[in-house]
């Protein structure tokens, strides 16, 4: 009985200790939590509040409820922007994943690659996007640039590149892929290096061809890594801004006017902060939705 009592008392003391410990933990993490709330939640809530306001060109503000969201539905430029955003997203992501995996395989198998070459391979994504944008702007200039010079010296017809409404999206996708493929390759290379050698040995004993090994072993085992790379690139690509801002500002016409560029211009050049907030929140929801979907996919392909 005494023993039971003492155990019960011990329980009470434990509970009190746990409570105190929890309090201590809460107190210790409070600054970080407050900082996070301040840095993420506040701007988000403020943007939501802004999206319910209308700002006239003179800066006068009034509450309009959901009118800004209703305006989205009838705004052709919004739907066009959404289309441009998705087209650019799909094209760039496909290019970067395919080329990234290929580059990773090359780097993985080239065991005697020097440090310099490896550094060169990954250097584009270390470059600030503004520098990359300016550099490509010069290279792709239809009259002064090197790209058309090379084309014409091989007897090919010159292209208008960024100045052609038809070619501007593929061209921007190419520039972005030039910059970010090495980043995808680096992630995939990490995944390759962590694959268990035993399955490869087994495949070798069974006499599987190189292609079959890739198709049946490497690719399925790499899927979680590829999905991670997809998530990281998706967040950036859906919010595509910097290279377009530097090279075309959404043009020619509105051929490269992504949602992010459109929202920025509505807010900071035409001063309609309310509508711009509604646009940006819609974009945020799209990005968030994509990340959630890919996260589920990652769960499904985990091994």
């Amino acid at each position: 009985m005494a023993a039971v009592e003492s155990v019960a008392m011990g329980d009470g003391a434990d509970a009190a200790g746990e409570g105190r410990q929890r309090l201590e933990l809460a107190a210790l993490s409070a600054p970080a939590v407050l900082f996070t709330v301040g840095m993420i939640a506040f701007p988000l809530v403020y943007t939501v509040w802004l999206s319910f306001q209308s700002f006239s060109s003179t800066g006068k503000q009034s509450f309009v409820g959901l009118a800004n969201y209703a305006k989205l539905i009838s705004d052709n430029e919004f739907w066009h922007g959404l289309w441009v955003t998705l087209a650019l997203y799909v094209l760039s992501l496909a290019l970067q994943l395919v080329l990234g995996v290929w580059l990773a395989l090359v780097l993985f198998h080239a065991r005697r690659l020097s440090g310099v070459v490896r550094t060169l391979f990954i250097s584009p994504f270390m470059m600030p996007p503004v520098v990359a944008g300016m550099m490509w702007l010069v290279i792709l200039d239809p009259s002064l640039g090197a790209a058309n010079y090379i084309l014409t010296s091989f007897g090919l017809p010159p292209s208008d590149w960024l100045a052609s409404p038809t070619w501007v999206i593929p061209t921007v996708a190419l520039i972005d892929s030039w910059q970010w493929t090495p980043y995808v390759a680096l992630i995939v290379l990490g995944g390759l290096q962590s694959l268990p050698p035993s399955v490869y040995e087994a495949a070798q004993i069974d006499g599987a061809s190189a292609f079959k090994t890739f198709q049946r072993i490497t690719l399925p085992l790499l899927l979680p890594t590829i999905v991670t790379a997809t998530i990281l690139r998706s967040v950036d690509l859906l919010r595509f801004f910097d290279i377009i801002y530097i090279t075309t500002q959404g043009g020619p016409g509105n051929a490269s006017n992504t949602l992010n560029i459109y929202g920025f211009r509505v807010g900071f050049e035409f001063f309609n902060i309310g509508y711009s907030s509604a646009l940006m929140l819609t974009l945020t929801a799209i990005v968030f939705g994509a990340v959630l979907a890919f996260n589920r996919l990652r769960g499904a392909v985990a091994w």
């Binding site: 009259s143 002064l144 043009g251």
Partner: peptide
């Protein structure tokens, strides 16, 4: 005008003219 003139602002125009083209 030059090809791609729809992307031309002062920066490209000055460069084109200065280079004698």
């Amino acid at each position: 005008g030059p090809p791609g003139v729809v992307n031309y602002s002062f920066y490209q125009i000055s460069a084109l003219y200065r280079s004698g083209r």
